[in-house]
Computed example of a mutant assay.
Amino acid sequence: MEMIRDGGLWRHTEIDDATQVGAARRQVALACADAGVADELTGKALIVAVELATNLHKHARRGALFVKAASANTIDLVSVDHGPGMDLQQCFVDGFSTSHTNGTGLGAVRRLSAAFDAYTDPSGSVVFARVGVVPAGLEYGSLAVAIRGESVSGDQWALRADEGGWTLVMADGLGHGPQAHEASAFVGPIADIDTAPSLQLQRANDLSRGTRGSAAAALRCRTAQAALDYASVGNLHCVVQRREQAQVLPGQNGTVGGAFPAVKQQQVAVEPRGLVVVHTDGLSGRWSLDRYPGLRIRHPQVVCGVLFRDCNRHRDDATVVAIRS
């Protein structure tokens, strides 16, 4: 299994008229340029972006296209809309269209993608396309955006994965904007420290002194033991989703970099092909995957898209990460 290092914000474009198709294409071009993506791969990503954005403009309500280049070899695109839903099997057939076009959009997207998945219901649809290389091993997804009007986010996350398992550190700096971003800047260095989650948060507290503080969680999944160690301070929402039930992992009251408690580390069992979902309070925690038939077995990136669609409060930075255990 190759080493995975991921984190950071997604670029996104709200598709509310035809001109936003071009705007979405430009956001994808910028993401590829920032990550040093080769021209040929960038060209594929741009085709996928135009097809997804055009589909949102012609067929959906309140659609948005998200893009993130995790590396120079991998570009992820996610389209999210609020209805009316679609017949996925028909939409993949070349020539099928509900708006009298050539009807090659989603079929072309799937052919150009190294990984592809989708989910639809009456509330809308989420389509995920990964262009380039699919990292071996860990299957995960994310969505992270700053509140409207801010260029940086107080939410930050860092994922590290290797043969032994994975580590996720997520923090939500109090408030939003540059000072909140500064308060949560420890996530990358802390995720790189190979130690227990409780000790990671203690170190995060040391690094955060003098900032406005944050809520934070650290999780370490050890694959061979099928065990998840975690510690959480503040109001991040952590859920272990099993076949029969979901378990919410409680956090402790306090603030990293402020009124910091004596951290209590806990351990829970994870099952093969289960899900671990962690998000900040930019998303409501009042959700259950039981409300979405079949969603639990979809790609974690699709799970993130659906939760973002239905639970985003739109008044704060918002971040969600889902990992297949």
Rank of each mutant, 00 (worst) to 15 (best):
A218P: 09
L219R: 02
L219T: 04
R220E: 08
R220V: 15
R220T: 14
C221R: 10
C221M: 12
R222P: 06
R222N: 15
T223G: 04
Q225P: 05
Q225C: 07
Q225K: 13
Q225I: 00
A227S: 12
L228E: 01
L228R: 03
L228K: 03
D229W: 09
D229Y: 10
D229P: 02
Y230G: 07
A231Q: 09
A231T: 09
A231K: 08
S232V: 05
S232Y: 02
V233N: 04
V233K: 03
G234P: 08
G234A: 07
G234H: 05
N235W: 01
N235H: 09
L236C: 09
L236T: 08
H237R: 09
C238M: 14
C238L: 15
V239R: 01
V239T: 12
V240Q: 06
Q241G: 01
R242Y: 00
R242M: 07
R243V: 12
R243P: 03
E244R: 08
E244H: 06
A246S: 14
L249I: 13
P250V: 02
Q252Y: 12
Q252S: 13
N253V: 13
N253R: 13
N253F: 08
N253E: 14
T255D: 02
V256R: 01
V256E: 04
V256K: 03
G257Y: 10
G257C: 14
G258M: 05
G258H: 04
A259I: 09
A259S: 12
F260Y: 14
F260G: 11
P261V: 13
A262Q: 13
V263F: 04
Q265N: 02
Q266M: 14
Q266K: 10
Q267L: 12
V268K: 09
V268E: 11
V270L: 09
E271H: 11
R273V: 01
G274R: 03
L275W: 01
V277L: 06
V278Q: 02
H279A: 06
H279N: 13
H279S: 11
T280S: 15
S284K: 12
G285M: 05
G285Y: 08
G285I: 02
W287G: 10
S288T: 14
S288P: 08
L289F: 12
R291F: 07
Y292R: 05
Y292C: 10
P293K: 11
G294Q: 12
L295R: 10
R296K: 14
R298P: 01
P300A: 03
Q301Y: 00
V303G: 00
C304A: 05
C304V: 00
